[in-house]
């Protein structure tokens, strides 16, 4: 019983410290899982690589980037495209977070965690941190492939890192959306499809793959204010990549700020909802 008493005494330590510690314990658990199920990581990498190749070589020649010299050649489009693919990649991590949490719920692990005297948000925070690590790995591999197909940065390494920082921050924010989906749908299969479906309109009604200047006005407004577009535009600026004709909407004129703001808002809203849901979640 002395072990239990020790635990109680130590609990009087500050709560935020406990929250960080618990989150890291859970993150470690999820990272060990990734190591033991490498297929998941491999597929997570293959998918965006496939997109890079498809868009570069299949669509690349056919999509002009207005505003660039002579609307650019395939190489201009590839450089335009890459920020979009990066952003799409980080948001697709959402599905992973959702499926993982739904799976834990399904297997009764969430019940176990909820019966333990651990910090409330730690199970979800730990999961989102582990997903962030995976996303970072994926983006690294993807960047190498991008360079191979002709992508270049023109404004220096610090700005490139700033861009990757914004991307990962957006990905982290989206993994909280995934967490909420995972807690809501209860089965891993539903979480995977539920985590992906809404990402398609989100990533396509944006400036990620085609310039928004060709869209009907309504759709263009949606695309300009899409959180996803802000990050894509910010990355294009920071990489010094072609941007096409940029709209006058506020997020497009201040994309870095818009990207940061969107990510913060998404985290605040969805973290709040997900943690609340977690506290009453049952398999």
């Amino acid at each position: 019983m002395s072990v239990a008493t020790g635990a109680v005494d130590r609990h009087r330590a500050r709560r935020p410290v406990q929250a960080v510690r618990d989150s890291l314990v859970v993150a470690q658990r999820n990272l060990i899982r990734m190591k033991r199920i490498p297929e998941v990581v491999v597929f997570a990498v293959i998918q965006p690589v496939m997109f890079v190749i498809l868009f570069s070589y299949v669509f690349g020649g056919a999509i002009p980037v207005p505003g660039e010299k002579g609307a650019g050649g395939p190489l201009v489009y590839r450089n335009y495209l890459m920020a979009g693919i990066f952003a799409q990649t980080v948001t697709f991590a959402t599905a992973g977070a959702g499926a993982g949490i739904a799976d834990d719920m399904h297997k009764g692990l969430i019940d176990r965690f909820r019966s333990l005297p651990m910090a409330r948000g730690a199970v979800l925070t730990g999961r989102t941190i582990a997903d962030l690590v995976q996303t970072a790995l994926t983006v690294m591999v993807l960047a190498v492939v991008a360079v191979l197909v002709g992508w270049r940065i023109h404004d220096g390494v610090p700005r490139m890192f700033a861009a990757f920082g914004l991307l990962l921050f957006l990905g982290y924010a989206f993994s909280w959306v995934g967490a909420l989906i995972g807690l809501t749908v209860r089965t891993p299969e539903a979480a995977t499809s539920g985590g992906l479906i809404w990402l398609f309109p989100l990533t396509f009604v944006s400036n990620a793959f085609v310039p928004t200047s060709g869209m009907p006005p309504f759709l263009r407004a949606v695309a300009d204010w899409n959180p996803f577009s802000a990050t894509v535009q910010a990355c294009r600026q920071l990489y010094g990549n072609p941007q096409g004709i940029v709209s006058h909407a506020w997020p497009m004129r201040h994309p870095v700020w818009a990207s940061l703001m969107w990510s913060v808002v998404i985290i605040l809203v969805f973290r709040g909802l997900a943690v609340r849901k977690y506290r009453t979640a049952t398999a």
Partner: peptide, 22 residues
Amino acid sequence: AAVDEYLTGRENLRMVGRLYQL
């Protein structure tokens, strides 16, 4: 049985121990 099937027995118990604040 609510154990993480991809963690070893030892890893499972250490994780739970740490979450009990040991």
